[in-house]
Amino acid sequence: MTTEKPNAWKKHEPHDGGDHREAEKKGSLAAIAKDLYPFELHLSSDELMLRRFFRADTSHIETITQTEAYRICR
């Protein structure tokens, strides 16, 4: 065994599958929320879940309050 092979770990083609990706392409948070994640179903849950979800899913949105999410979804 050698470790002289080039690094095989790399970023591959952009992931663009799924309706949520189509929504994301539109660049609209409202589109993402409404098309795939209807938060009105979940607003009784904790705000942290919303924050974590958005942070994980969209790099351009760092934080979002429950009120903001509620307003967008409406």
Partner: peptide
């Protein structure tokens, strides 16, 4: 859900893990 896309699943996982 409407229009569930099986082909998007694995890519979503690798992206989420990376994030």
């Amino acid at each position: 859900v409407a229009k569930w896309d099986f082909r998007a699943v694995l890519a979503e996982y690798s992206k989420r893990c990376g994030q």
